[in-house]
């Protein structure tokens, strides 16, 4: 097995002179070939041809300029993880080179999330059924929860008005509209529809540009956000936890592992949500009854 556990990582650092020369860089990459294959299979599950293509693309790009990208490793972190970051970056480039930026709509690109791009490709380009697309996405991004992909696929289908290939009676979809269905607004925000409010907040988070008709409503939302920011106190780690959980649908287990967190994460998230709810209620963004 080509997995490099800690003791092997230490041996790598001890047996290679840093900075790496081109021969050592090449040797290290080929030594990790099985690991790279697994990453490609995980990135393109149920698609051997894409996985193989991606693997060759990664190798080709790593080899450029006498393995320059690999030689950039300074031995500060584990080589294994460093190579995974390089590979993830290159596999994203491969997907883009395969399908091109121009064929994916702006609203998908604006999300800056490869999972959205992949979902779009599965449904629109590769003609997968809704059910199969959700399955593949769930396998590809194990750290995220299923509802996230159900919403994602529903949103893409709703935006493309495209008939779905297979019968999908087994999968219930929660649409984006449902997310705000129980959100109760006070008089303060009554004029802003719930759906619009949610879309504007998500758009704001994703750097999306709004058209002129939305600008006045967005100005109102930005004013609310500005007032809310004064009342909030969150660490960078807190923000990252919330983003992973509520924007990217990651499970508590995946968040805990990704951030190497200790303690009860459920309690921590609940505390953050209480803090945010109180701040929103004080500002009149939420009713007391919520």
């Amino acid at each position: 097995m080509a997995i490099k556990p800690i003791h092997i990582e230490n041996e790598i650092k001890a047996s290679f002179n840093l900075p790496l020369d081109e021969y050592d860089a090449k040797e290290l990459v080929f030594d990790q070939w099985q690991f790279l294959s697994r990453l490609a299979e995980r990135r393109f599950p149920n698609d051997d041809s894409m996985a193989q293509g991606a693997l060759l693309f990664v190798l080709e790009k790593l080899e450029v300029d006498k393995w320059k990208r690999v030689r950039a490793w300074e031995g500060q972190g584990a080589f294994h993880t460093f190579l995974a970051v390089l590979t993830a970056r290159l596999m994203t480039d491969y997907t883009r080179s395969k399908f091109g930026h121009h064929r994916t709509p702006t609203w998908i690109n604006n999300k800056n999330d490869i999972a959205w791009t992949k979902a779009y490709q599965l449904i629109i380009f590769q003609n997968y059924s809704r059910k199969d697309a959700i399955e593949i996405l769930s396998i590809s991004y194990r750290g995220r929860e299923r509802w996230y992909f159900e919403e994602m696929v529903a949103t893409i289908l709703a935006n493309n008005n495209r008939p779905v290939r297979a019968i999908e009676s087994q999968v219930q979809i929660d649409t984006i509209e449902d997310v705000s269905c129980s959100f109760q607004t006070s008089e303060y925000t009554e004029k802003i529809s719930e759906k619009m409010l949610l879309e504007a907040v998500i758009g704001y988070l994703n750097d999306q540009e709004s058209d002129r008709s939305q600008q006045s409503e967005n100005q109102e939302i930005e004013r609310l956000l500005s007032q809310l920011s004064i009342k909030l106190s969150m660490s960078e780690e807190d923000k990252l936890i919330l983003r992973m959980r509520y924007c990217d649908g990651m499970s508590i287990t995946a968040i805990t592992k990704a951030l190497s967190l200790k303690g009860d994460i459920y309690k921590r998230i609940n505390k953050l949500i209480r803090h945010l709810t109180n701040a929103c209620t004080e500002l009149g963004v939420l009713d007391d009854t919520v």
Partner: peptide
């Protein structure tokens, strides 16, 4: 749903 909305508000 409310949990998600306040989280998104807080992040924004």
């Amino acid at each position: 749903d409310n949990e998600r909305l306040v989280a998104l508000f807080g992040l924004a």
